[in-house]
Design a protein around this nucleic acid. Structure first.
Lengths: 192, 192, 192, 192
DNA sequence: GATGAATGAGACTTCATTCAT
DNA sequence: AATGAATGAAGTCTCATTCAT
């Protein structure tokens, strides 16, 4: 089935992309309570244009989150093709957490992914879930990750760790060691 | 050092306590964007009274956080007296995380504790740091907690895990397993 | 039963009255689509003050209508005490229609009265209904008004005629003659 | 006198007619505050097309009114040929009022007719005036309608009664009796 | 001529904060 | 000290109108 939405005019498509891009940056800097006006201003468009593309501030936020999820799923897919499943999984986890500080509210995006699977069936959320699950299962089969956790636990930990990492005042080495703790916890208990 | 603030009139003292109590509940229920007006209403005082005690909404939020910290430090002190240092530490950690959901934004309070040490030297923050550090060091000396982390890492993990736990839509058993991962990560590596 | 709303502070009462007064004039001049901002400006208060007294524009409009109804009911009561029931009724009807031009949307207030009796049971609407009904019944008993109509028909005609009269471009004598037609129609058919 | 406007391209003519048709329905349903955008959407054209045909929302509204007037004038003309002048007049009056509910704001169209004679000399308005006047005069000559009123009074009453009838919450039988009152008022006084 | 994206003034509403009572 | 009315900046959203495609 083909969607019946005709493709946007080129200028509109450009504006939409620009808005999404700017919005991501603005929300990263000031949190999700940043005003729609500021997004419009920094994108160089009128406030009405924002509204046309995203009828509600919530819609704009959701679009930003979805865009992020899409990129994260892509990254997971890329890593899934690597030779070492364990390394692939831990790399993905660590990368996400390390990139969190520069994108405030990434954790919300992730949380949204974990949640709405039950409510709004969104293709992107499904794709993200599939990509991460694949990464996880391969690592578990390879014995690199403990077997008693699933997608939900991984997301919860990812959300948590990302959130912790968003607080820029924590020193980088503290972040590293805290992350190491979580990663160690994800490994199977040796000599258990 | 003695503060030069004269003691509050008895009704004022009562109002202040009541406000703090109500504010904690309100912010827990609706997040920190709940209105000052609602706090006043539910405390049964005029809005002017809130601002007399806490000249700024930020001041009110901080006071709530400090009150929480004080209670947490007390709890840490109580546990520090128990016989098993390892169990004391893990109990403290788990208790805090499990109680997070019912106090929205607790993580912010904790984050604030980690932070402001550099800015505002607050006696309560210092006390909290001392209490938790004691708990940690005893557990480490007893070999129950890995030795390569300190107060900062623990707080970061606590903030993270609490935040993850605040999202009520995650199932309790998922929360438990995610918490278990972090706790396991905190233990020394066996057979290393 | 006493309402549990404590009386307004004197300055608030003054402002409320002023706002109602100004709002009535503004809506009369520009129709009900006049902005709340303009009401605030002409009342010499901040926009927030309007909101405090009338949380919604709809609330403000309703308050204006209710105030009008109250005055109309009072006028009906005053006339009900006059010696000639027929004259009382026709005077009331004519007065209302003649005063309509200077209060745009009076008809809406009246329509509201006719309507909401079924929905929102408002004391003022009930009072208005009672007052006008009394006036009507006395005139009918005196043989001055045809017997086959009731309150509902009178209100409908009043609303209609008032609306017609609101269009200021119609010459006064045309208005008079049109009103005369309606009044004649209300009289019992002679020699029927 | 010939207008120097070149004839519209066939698709443009079709669009114009469609727009007028849709606009009448939309304004009837939602009142004149319905958005121009909705008219465009339901007509299946771009918003730009609406503004090309009617440079202003006011222009669109006026065009709708004019179209209505034209149809009303036609109806008046048709009735003017019937045998009974009195019945023709009353039928016309009653028909208009009865059809008012389904065309919200018809009264405004009529009011516009009464008015703009002085401002914009529109052929259609003149035609309407002539048609209704003819209907009225014939009925008066036949003794079916009182002689002391003219076109202006009839329009005023028509506008009034139509407005009253537009309020859908009034029961149909109430409407009927109210209309009967006006019609009776239009008849010559018997036994005067 | 048709299209629909962009515009931006302006409407309503919220809320932290001030200040007269 | 307490009160709560007043304030007004700021936020979200709407919509008539313009203009590049």
């Amino acid at each position: 089935m083909v969607t019946n939405e005709r493709p946007l005019r080129s200028d509109a498509r450009r504006n939409r992309a620009k808005l999404l891009d700017v919005a991501e940056r603005v929300f990263a800097e000031k949190g999700t309570s940043a005003s729609t006006e500021e997004v419009a201003r920094r994108a160089g468009v009128g406030i009405g244009t924002v509204f046309r593309h995203f009828p509600t501030k919530g819609d704009l936020l959701e679009a930003v989150f979805v865009a992020r999820l899409r990129r994260l799923a892509d990254e997971a897919d890329r890593l899934a093709e690597s030779a070492d499943p364990g390394e692939a999984f831990f790399t993905f986890f660590a990368q996400m957490v390390r990139s969190a500080p520069e994108k405030n509210a990434l954790s919300e995006a992730l949380a949204a992914a974990g949640v709405d699977v039950t409510e709004t069936a969104s293709p992107i959320k499904d794709a993200f879930r599939t990509s991460v699950s694949t990464l996880l299962e391969r690592a578990q089969r390879a014995g690199a990750v403990r077997a008693d956790i699933g997608f939900a636990e991984v997301i919860t930990l990812l959300v948590s760790a990302s959130h912790g990492a968003e607080h820029s005042f924590t020193a980088p080495d503290v972040q590293s060691r805290a992350l190491a703790v979580v990663l160690d916890g994800l490994r199977p208990r040796t000599g258990g």
